[in-house]
Nucleic acid binder design. Structure first.
Lengths: 132, 132
DNA sequence: GTGGATGCAAACTCTTTGCACCTTG
DNA sequence: CAAGGTGCAAAGAGTTTGCATCCAC
């Protein structure tokens, strides 16, 4: 995955433009505006390559299939900026949350070594607080 | 799902005996000792019924398919006791954590209404802290 | 020009459904 | 005995792979 193909550019553009985590299907929908016949296969293959080269990050939320996001541009920090996610139960969109409650190590019983944590908030995004 | 079949009993027994969250495949492995020809189809069907009647709870962790657990017997509390999970990155087992850092509502940006949160700790369980 | 990238179709994995047979109450 | 449950096989949904063609460098 080294060449700058139209497909690759369109996929990256969709991720940067959205500012949130997208599923492969969402990416294809967005990128299809630039590359009409873009196949899902190509989306999956490009994402795999982009994740390997750390240009894109995977986002795994409970009960959902993997989404992808462009690393945030927070003050010079690069790719692996630690953050969490907000999942809107109404529109199903996923937004980054650049905050963290801190170490969770004290929650585990003795004998468990905590190395990492994932936190997901569920609720209504600003656009959906009044709906349904 | 109202009858007490051998299959149903074996599935429930495997969940209670384990004390942790099991995948459908793990459940079948355990329950197969009691019911040798137990089909995965039946496991899925019983789990669906058990979840509907709140006898069993689903556990969704990031990047993994749904697991199931018997509600804990913590001091008279019933089915929907709020808790989190610890995922061992070595043996892949999932353990309940009966602790919670409390409300996470303040982490979300203004305009987001937080209704619920999921927290998953990753690391080594007591049996795996020395291994690999 | 050539090796990497693409798109289609087929393969794969996980889960659900259709259907004939079996079991519980 | 009748309604519900089981097991097999097939169907679906999401993701990956094989292969001939295409295109970026």
């Amino acid at each position: 995955m080294k060449r700058n193909t139209r497909q690759r550019e369109a996929i990256l553009a969709s991720l940067h433009a959205s500012g949130r985590s997208l599923s492969p299907v969402e990416i294809r929908e967005e990128a299809s505006r630039d590359v009409p016949n873009l196949s899902l296969t190509t989306v999956y293959r490009q994402l795999k390559g982009l994740v390997e080269e750390a240009t894109v990050e995977t986002v795994d939320l409970p009960g959902q299939s993997t989404r992808y996001e462009a690393p945030c541009g927070v003050s010079g920090e690069s790719a692996d900026h630690h953050h969490h996610h907000f999942h809107c139960v109404h529109c199903e969109k996923v937004y980054p949350i650049h905050a963290c409650p801190g170490s969770m190590a004290q929650l585990a019983p003795k004998g468990f070594r905590v190395e990492r944590h994932d936190l997901t908030l569920h609720g209504r995004c600003p656009a959906c607080t009044g709906k349904g």
